[in-house]
Design a protein around this nucleic acid. Sequence first.
DNA 1: TCAAGATGATCAG
DNA 2: TGATCCTCTTGAT
Length: 276
Amino acid sequence: MPEGHTLRRLADELDAAFCRRPARVSSPQGRFAADAAVLDGAEVIGADSAGKHLFVEFAGDRVVHIHLGLIGGLVVRPAPARPPVGQVRLRLENDTAWADLRGATQCELVTGSRRDEIVAALGPDPLRPDADPDRAWRRISRSPRPIGELLMDQTVLAGVGNVYRAEVLFRHRIDPMRPGRTLRKAQWTAMWTDLVALMAEGVRTGRIDTVRAEHSPEAMARPPRVDDHGGEVYVYRRTGQPCHVCGATIRTSELAGRNLFWCPRCQRKFRSRALG
DNA sequence: TCAAGATGATCAG
DNA sequence: TGATCCTCTTGAT
């Protein structure tokens, strides 16, 4: 379930469970075994996230760089540890906690400077207080690419995934196919401000809820949703269902290889004046 | 029991 | 643009 808020929560959990203490490090599956052996017994300096990247720093300028990809998962649990089940790429363990990593696209041992390079290549992360939204705006305002694609580009904006992309575009009634360069600065500022609040709420609750209070009675009247993202949303994976706001049928299509969801009435197709 | 699909990203062509 | 990697859940058979 990896969008930026998930990674931030995991970083906080790892930090609370392992920070400033030595950890036993292993790779039951074997694919991280050599690096795990090097780290085994080292002190954990701390854990942090940037966009969808997770970093666990160990003493001696050693950082485990993790990217969960589409299907990866990381769980942090109180001791005692269970025997590993399935393909556990990385296990961290101390006297009070243990953590298992599975299915990650990336799990590699890097240096602090390499971590800094990875972070520097990312766009601003709405979850970081020092993030500069103007950096993203400079890319968006010059790009002919659809805004729905730009929001998912991690070098433009870090941490936003398919759910937040679909939801923030709906909340601002923006056509996902609208070229970035046709957006007004005020629209971008409003979207950024919204993402900052929505994602912070996601960190707090561990789920993605985007439906505004004035629309929630109707939304809540339906049976509870059990989608993986666990929250109440306007359009994400609601294909064929009525829009909470206007009642039109939510639609889906593919954009840059990913599923895109939108309301054809609330998010009317953008037509450039120049093209008539 | 098995296939399909999923909140991601990279690489070859 | 399509293929590929990785794991788990869901739904069809």
